[in-house]
């Protein structure tokens, strides 16, 4: 066979040039002729918008699962000074009543059932009259069963995070990273990425990657951005946030 590299004929290049020439007006006055017919344009645009809609509207929705939480929990109600009876001078102190630090500095995360039963101690006499509370009492308090919460902010397994470093040493409010979760009355639907299994709260809800609040996303770059801004560049080494 002839070696194409040494062949004098560069046929493919010639083909492209003559194709491009065809798009330009020629010397004998014939006007520009579009390479596609009208039907072709319609198909092209339909295909484009179809793919566009799929990529930007359908895919981001289809990518995430939708799972309800086991029971409804009302942060606003429990933090209401007239209802809950949870004490604390600052907002953070109130949160720490349930989301406490252990003596060794580790963070307890979502409270265990034992914390709830400090108030909801008797399944026979609920504190209120709501259906949600009855359900909670019957399903979990009566049988002393832990509630299998789905955790919105859970990072991948390889990530190390320390609440005490941020909340106590860094003096950062919970809201900076968790937004208004503590003001919600109803729990949002938990949505996990079907490919990675990570919660949508990490990747962010916006497919285009816009971020208006500090808590919209918590990816690697969002962590590092704040560390740099706060002058803690030493915390941008891999083994600070990874384990």
């Amino acid at each position: 066979m002839e070696n194409p590299a040494t062949s004098p004929k560069k046929s493919s290049k010639g083909g492209w040039i003559s194709f491009l020439k065809g798009l330009l007006p020629t010397e004998n006055g014939s006007a520009f002729v579009p390479p596609f017919s009208l039907i072709g344009w319609i198909f092209l645009l339909a295909g484009f918008f179809g793919a566009f809609t799929f990529g930007w509207v359908v895919y981001p929705v289809a990518l995430y699962s939708r799972q309800p939480q086991p029971i409804s929990f009302n942060h606003a109600l429990h933090l209401d000074p007239d209802v809950g009876g949870i004490e604390g001078d600052t907002e953070t102190e109130k949160c720490l009543y349930c989301h406490e630090f252990r003596d060794d500095g580790t963070f307890s995360g979502i409270p265990k059932l034992a914390k709830c039963t400090e108030c909801h101690d008797d399944p026979e006499s609920p504190l209120g009259e709501t259906q949600q509370e009855k359900e909670f009492m019957e399903k979990y308090v009566a049988g002393q069963k832990e509630i299998p919460w789905l955790i919105y902010y859970r990072q991948p397994d390889c990530v190390y995070f320390s609440h005490i470093a941020h909340v106590k040493m860094g003096k950062i409010e919970c809201q900076t990273c968790h937004g208004d979760h503590s003001k919600t009355e109803k729990l949002p639907i938990y949505r996990a990425n079907l490919l990675t299994g990570y919660s949508i709260n990490i990747w962010g809800k916006n497919i285009a990657g816009y971020k208006t609040n500090t808590w919209d996303r918590m990816k690697m770059d969002d962590c590092a951005e704040c560390h740099t801004k706060k002058g803690h560049e030493e915390n941008n080494a891999c083994f600070v946030c990874h384990k």
Binding site: D104, G105, Y160, S162, I164, A165, K168, M169, K243
Partner: peptide, 15 residues
């Protein structure tokens, strides 16, 4: 390395 982070957390708890 995780023991370093654990020790740091422990120290932070004691300010």
């Amino acid at each position: 390395h995780h023991r370093l982070m654990r020790a740091k957390n422990n120290a932070y708890a004691e300010e």
